[in-house]
Amino acid sequence: ADYTLTISSWAPPTHGINAKMWPKFVEMVEEATDGQVTAELKLGIAPPPAQMDLIMDGAADASIIFHGYQPGRFVTTKLIELPGYEGSAEDASVAYWRAYDQHLKAADEHRGVKVIALHTHGPAQLHSSAPVTTLDEVSGLKVRIPGGVGGDVGAALGATGIQVPAPKVYETLASKAADGVVMPLESRKGFKLTEVAQNVYEMPGGLYRGSFAFIMNEDTFADLPPELQTALEENVFGEPLSREIGKIWDEIDATGREATEAAEGNAINAATDADMEKFSAIAEDIRGKVIAEVDATGVDAQAAYDMIKSEMSSN
């Protein structure tokens, strides 16, 4: 290859992000450029919140960021995290990219880097060591939940927040410093939750969805010959990549569900209709608050929300 991009990434080596998503990215890039551009993965160069700085200054060419790790910096990304959407991670990721392209981009929150994909993990559910079967039981639990919308949901349910990075979740649950954790189903396998949080409380559409972006250094992109730039823009970056990565989130969620069904002593408890109704009231409160917050950044939050909602249900 004429151009080899350096990818900086941070999840465990075996996690879907590194085992599947980046390889998919490389595959798509190579295919679109006839093998002229490729990429190699480097793990552990810096912790997650440092990734955007690293990409901005060219310490690596591409990376993945989780918007919740940088409170204050990202507000419009909270729209996709809202509970209440129904659909797969693939549908959500595609809708997310379209809403970004039409509305959210204007807030310019990723200034300094080139956004090449936006995606969300599957619906996040509550995983706990003691069984939780009703929404009321969440109150008083110590729960690891990321900031942003997830934090708002946790607070509304009366849970106490515990702050630990995702790779430390296993230890935190094993040591009972937390009673539970809110993560997508893929983490049952990716973070070995089947061993330390045997019970899942499943709410259709999830308690929230985490928001991620793939980002790229602007100079690196500008240095590529125009025809390669066009090839990447048309065939990889934006909607195509977002869709493929969303698909992988769905795929690894399915693996997590299988692992749970196969693991002894594990159970998935579905929310009752009454609880779903109760939760949709909570979700509506949070939605109102987040839409107001996003509105304040100058984008038309309601229009963006409606767009995501209809894109997702049209699939």
């Binding site: 700085d53 901005m56 409170p71 204050g72 702050q163």
Partner: peptide, 14 residues
Amino acid sequence: ERARDYGDVTEYLS
């Protein structure tokens, strides 16, 4: 200065 420009804050105490 960049963190200031982007408005980065801590999670609980802002």
